[in-house]
Design a protein around this nucleic acid. Structure first.
Lengths: 232, 232
DNA sequence: GACAAACTATATCGAACGATAGAGAATGGT
DNA sequence: ACCATTCTCTATCGTTCGATATAGTTTGTC
């Protein structure tokens, strides 16, 4: 039969009656998820084959339907996985409080730098996002409501607050959101292209730091430096 | 047999001996190319099926192998087609002279505005680019050498010239290239996501103009305004 | 240490994929 | 007006897709 653990998060204690054990299963699930992240990011949902994912994970294709209900459910698990990794990478910086009204230019500058560093080391997330966002689908609806909207609201509130206080340029939140995400992620999303265009070494740590500094300058202006914010 | 016109550009005069006629064939080829642009943009090369392309073009699937050598060759024809449309959209503005040393801030500002307007009405181009750029392949190598490199060099020279003359912020050309392309295109590449996130009406003409103005401000700074350009 | 449950591995299903063969319909050249 | 050529359409090829059935293996619990 095909109706095993399915959608059980890894938080279930070893209840005696209903279920028994997971030792190797957890390893298989994790290997499948990480292989799926790589394959979905590289080839898109339709282009990634379950056999390629299973082979990369070092197991066999039917394991996907055993540990996950379907290719679709594996995709969802993979997306949740990369967003969890993003949150972990951003946790060191206080991204959560971004929407608060006392947001400052320097807080947003720190956030931008943190975002650039995070997406640079996690290109698969934005590759998957962009592969899905090019056409409407149930998967896009799911990812927008589950992962995108909250993050958009956070950034829009932060920018709106700074904008109302004339601490940043008078640019619409919607414009800033897509400009910032696009400007932050494309070099890493398109890393295979960048390697061909600029050479293997082009997208290194020095690039990431120059990129972070450059985006801060572009979005927040050159350091406020001497007292007066250049409003009005 | 399968060895018809294949890779004949539409520039061959009606030579009497070898070939005969193309009236409906040209219409079929064009319909296939435009359908292919849409399907490849939405689903990627591997995700787009030749049957879906043929159906959208109002014809049958084997026509693809008759008019083009393979799915791969159809993809190349589709990519050339969208880049030709981009060039047509940019032709009104003098993008070509961008690399010249006498480039000015205002010339680049005009170019940025033109690019934003062009990619807004041609989202398929950047969708295809980004779908291919997420993984290395022969197709990526082809597209980089054929279409990307020249455009990159043009922008890099323009920015470098302005940067040396201190007319723009001191940011690396490589950073600026990916930041500008990303910031210009993501809202249109991700239009299906933007509709879910912001509503159906969000990415309209007003957005495009606000976007163009916003990018000019971010990349070139607020208008030089009062007389003196700040370089010696 | 035995046994039932959980997990893994092999075999195979029907559907969809890109590509080809060849019959049929349309058309420019004479 | 005819005909050779070009283009279109139907049928079908071999392969690969996601999914399932089922046999085999491992392991926590008693």
């Amino acid at each position: 039969m095909a109706d095993p653990p399915a959608s059980s998060p890894s938080s279930s204690p070893p209840t005696s009656a209903t279920r028994r054990r997971q030792a190797r299963a957890d390893a298989t699930r994790l290997a499948l998820i990480e292989a799926a992240v790589h394959e979905f990011a590289a080839h898109g949902f339709e282009g990634a084959s379950t056999r390629a994912i299973a082979t990369r994970a070092g197991t066999h294709q039917p394991q996907i339907n055993y540990h996950f209900e379907s290719k679709d459910e594996l995709w969802r698990a993979a997306v949740d996985h990369v967003f969890a990794k993003l949150d972990a990478a951003l946790a060191a910086h206080q991204i959560e409080g971004l929407g608060a009204d006392e947001i400052t230019r320097d807080r947003l500058a720190d956030a931008i730098r943190a975002i650039v560093r995070a997406v640079a080391q996690l290109p698969e997330l934005n590759r998957i996002m962009i592969q899905e966002a090019t056409a409407d689908s149930d998967r896009l609806a799911w990812i927008v409501e589950r992962h995108t909207r909250g993050r958009y609201d956070l950034l829009a509130e932060a920018w709106g607050s700074l904008r109302r206080r004339r601490l940043v340029a008078d640019i619409d939140e919607t414009v800033v959101y897509y400009a910032l995400i696009g400007a932050s992620t494309l070099a890493y999303v398109n890393a295979p292209e960048a390697r061909r265009l600029l050479g293997d070494h082009a997208i290194d740590d020095a690039f990431v730091e120059a990129h972070a500094d450059g985006l801060v300058t572009m979005f927040l202006g050159p350091e406020p430096a001497a007292g007066g914010a250049s409003a009005d």
